[in-house]
Design a protein around this nucleic acid. Structure first.
Lengths: 295, 295
DNA sequence: CGGGCCGATACCCTGAGGGTATGGCGGACC
DNA sequence: GGTCCGCCATACCCTCAGGGTATCGGCCCG
């Protein structure tokens, strides 16, 4: 069982995700034949068939499924090694927090204040950006992240729930559903919806959704509608947009997540600060963010 | 930040462990100059100095410490990907248990019986061997392991304590301390002791200690003495060897450990079986393995 | 039965990475 | 303080892993 290079893993992950050698090769920036060879060699080295090429279809074998999951984890670990070392070398210890802009449900200021009041608190750097917010946690670019539970993949991360929210749909004022006090998911069939939870940042009619403000504009213009956690309503208001509860949408949870094996005391302190703030917020919710009524 | 290959990590880990390019190169089976170049390139790619070469001394920088830890973890993850995929491909789902022979404190038969009585239990394969028993857990060759707490490195593993044991010293009958009812650690200064907890399997006067039986023989022959958890006494008796409690030796804990991110139900079931057995054993200890008296 | 899609094979070629020889710098010892 | 020695860095060469192009072969579909 010779040494597996990360290149082998990257190649396999690409093929496993595309289930198509040609597209995977293109994504990797190489030609298809070397990729075929590489995968074949990989299978030979492991002594296991990872992909079933039965005619025009490529599918993952059971071993391939396992190897895909483990490979992703291993690649994350390699990336984390690099990022953590760089951050350690750049001196200036910091705690990096990753989040979607506006995704903190208004909790962040209080959490930051609580954390920074703790003895030995590090400066907190906020890393806001589009795309999958859990990736920076896995690959070591961030220490903690505010994620949204059903949307983000928490596999391999530790997490603490901060807040459970209902979801609302954002509609332009002139929309056919805007007159109703509430809607159901079935009412939204056939509407243009941004693929909010999907992995690559979604595009609506060619426009990339990169921040909540832009999304609001698009809604006001009648180009799309969106289902979002109700706290977004308070963070970002926009004329021409109304929100209506979606009764049967599953509730979202704002979770604070971090890498499982992270033994840093700074992360532990931040998590403690955040949960304390969350408990307090649940007890006495700020105006505009009503607590979920007891059943 | 170009792709880091596992080769880079392996090379760095070797140098970081040896703190000597020449020895590290020898260990890796390559010459020293390519190794120097590789490390230098690695540092250039990361943009961080990992090693401080100040005169004849090589030391790790702070970033190097971080990178060493993370690199080990990443290499384990890569190895785990390979092993898990192979095991998944070989069909025949099994639960692999790693342990030091005789290191189960007599708990194993009951644990196996309890686990196998559970619905959906997999066949258990026992992987006994010398060396570091936590490595197979990290690199995916084993699912669960019985480790000994102060001796095995549990970093990055989840673990459940099964049993806390006092330690005893094994002496040849003719030994100067054999006449005493108990000893203290200070009495053992200067004695020939196998480096039991050390990473490479220790050698006593050129003999590799590979199993408990051999160790017993060596003790009976007066070649060495050993401090071991008291349950070893019951698993393996030998004429010519007596055991005496070591009053001030730290107690050892038999722990059941597994990879943190392992979400397999089989592992969960095994852990549950083991803890139940351990609780029962603590309540009514079998003859010969007295429970630790309440303080 | 023919065309097109897609993975596998054949063959070449480039460059990353390994080897040998040697330089250069520090520390140690007399 | 000079010399020696240990050890990492540099210089230079060479080999082969891995990438590219061209093409084959099997499968599906019309």
């Amino acid at each position: 069982m010779a040494d597996l290079e990360t290149r082998n893993l990257r190649y396999f992950v690409a093929v496993a995700e595309e289930l198509h050698f040609g597209r995977a090769a293109e994504r990797l920036g190489i030609a298809q034949p070397p990729l075929s060879r590489a995968i074949k060699r990989l299978e030979a080295r492991l002594g296991v068939e990872l992909l079933a090429r039965s005619g025009g279809r490529v599918t993952l074998t059971e071993a391939g499924e396992v190897f895909l999951r483990e490979s992703r984890r291993a690649l994350d670990a390699v990336a984390a090694a690099a990022h953590r070392a760089v951050r350690a070398g750049r001196g200036a210890r910091r705690l990096v927090l990753t989040m979607k802009p506006g995704g903190d449900a208004g909790l962040l200021p209080a959490i930051l204040a609580a954390y920074e009041a703790m003895p030995g608190a590090l400066p907190v750097e906020i890393m806001a950006g589009a795309g999958d917010r859990s990736a920076p946690l896995r690959d070591g670019r961030a220490d903690v992240g505010m994620l949204h539970s059903p949307y983000s993949d928490l596999e391999g991360l530790d997490a603490e729930s901060l807040l459970v929210e209902r979801q609302v749909v954002l509609l332009p004022t002139g929309h056919r559903l805007a007159a109703r006090p509430w809607v159901r998911l079935s009412d939204l069939r056939g509407e243009t919806m941004p693929p909010w939870p999907s992995r690559p940042v979604g595009s609506i009619a060619g426009q990339n959704v990169i921040d909540v403000g832009q999304l609001m504009q698009l809604i006001a213009l009648g180009r799309t509608i969106a289902v979002v956690p109700e706290s977004v309503r308070d963070v970002m208001r926009q004329d021409g947009v109304v929100c209506r509860p979606v009764l049967d949408a599953p509730p979202t949870t704002v979770v604070l997540a971090w890498q499982q094996d992270n033994c840093s005391t700074a992360v532990a302190a931040f998590v403690r600060a955040a949960t304390e703030v969350a408990v307090r917020a649940a007890a006495s919710p700020p105006a505009g963010v009503p607590a979920t009524a007891d059943a």
